[in-house]
Amino acid sequence: MPAPEIAIIGGGPCGLILARLLESKGVVDYLVYERDESDGSNPNEGGSLDLHPETGQRALQEAGLFGEFERYARYDDTVFTITDKLGNRLVEIGQGRDAPEIDRHELRHILLNSIPKEKIKWGHSLTIVTLGEDGKHVLHFGNGLVISGVRLIVGADGAWSKVRPMVCITQATPKYTGKTVLATTISNANPLYETTAAKVGPGSSLAISSGKYIMTQRQGDGSYRTSFGVHSLDNNPFSGDIETTRRLLLSSTYYADWSEDHKALIRQATHLRAWPLHSLAAEDMGWMSVPGLTLTGDAAHLSFIGGEGVNMAMADSLQLALKIVEHGMNNLDQAVREYESGMFPRGIAGIEEGKVMESVMHGEDPGAFIQLVSS
């Protein structure tokens, strides 16, 4: 297999929007390498994303995909209801906000359908990047494929990027934040569905108390995704079976003193998948540019969840694509240097904003969160 001029590692929104932007601007010698065996993603995997005007939406506009996006965008799901742990409504915000929701799997399908099928190499899990004897970087995949001669490797491969170690000479590694999110989905077959739909309606409902939160959000198919955000010194305390996890969440350590409606969400959960949350540090930004390599999205500036992650990733891809087009394939190193000089301050701001969001989402009560999102 001949090496492409540009290898994009990762077929999530970040890598795919970069591929589409390059394709639409006439830069066609690229390939996307994705670890998934095919696009058989779970519709409930990853939940819903809100795309912002100057970042995610702008990238889609530049890519010529905004009209397709609007077919799936949910402008009425921007409403955010804040409650206390007893279920008392405190405030409702977000009406009319220009940040429509779209399910992650729907966005992925839009992007996949916008580039030639042969440009996606499924089942290619990158294991390591090395430096060859000729001074060029070599890609090693889990399926045995080894590729050298790529002129630009773009690490769009998320939190545990295999490209990052060759880019960041400080060997930056995400650190556990001490917070974990457990997620479940309330389908229309769940006994709680009608009650949840009546309480939450379009948009989301969030309760914060004693350093924990519960957020329920409507998805594109009408189901509701519920996330339980908790403190834990152990970054994998919920590794047991679902009944063990359920008992732990209902214990005095977590949600025992919350409303019966909130606890019913735990009791009726058909699955509870845990995500220990990690973040890079602001000090990890600002590496010396490495010829032939760069990072985008979470691979570059992973931060605490808060709605900006996919937007910043898509903004990275847009800026990188524009710089490649501006400088041409003969000046990729210059394009990368200029892209990174603009990405670093965005990344630092995103990491610092993530710290603020972490603090208010895990506050003693919803007051600080309400103040932050209302300002």
Rank of each mutant, 00 (worst) to 15 (best):
2 P>Y: 12
19 A>R: 01
22 L>E: 02
31 L>I: 05
39 D>G: 10
39 D>P: 03
43 P>V: 13
50 D>V: 02
62 E>P: 00
62 E>C: 10
65 L>G: 07
75 Y>G: 00
76 D>G: 05
79 V>Y: 04
91 V>A: 11
97 R>M: 10
99 A>R: 15
110 I>R: 00
117 K>N: 11
119 K>I: 11
128 I>A: 14
129 V>D: 03
136 K>W: 00
143 N>Q: 06
146 V>P: 03
147 I>G: 04
149 G>N: 03
164 R>M: 05
165 P>K: 04
167 V>Q: 04
175 K>E: 10
176 Y>V: 14
178 G>A: 11
179 K>V: 11
180 T>K: 07
181 V>I: 15
185 T>V: 13
186 I>A: 03
201 G>P: 09
210 S>D: 14
211 G>V: 13
211 G>R: 11
222 G>K: 05
226 T>Q: 08
227 S>G: 09
228 F>R: 09
229 G>V: 07
233 L>W: 09
236 N>H: 15
241 D>N: 13
242 I>K: 14
243 E>Q: 08
250 L>T: 06
251 S>C: 14
256 A>V: 04
261 D>P: 01
265 L>Q: 07
271 H>N: 12
272 L>W: 02
273 R>K: 12
278 H>A: 15
293 L>N: 03
296 T>I: 13
298 D>A: 15
310 V>C: 08
310 V>P: 00
317 S>G: 12
324 I>G: 06
326 E>T: 07
330 N>V: 01
330 N>I: 00
350 G>I: 00
353 E>P: 00
356 V>G: 04
357 M>H: 05
366 P>M: 03
375 S>M: 12
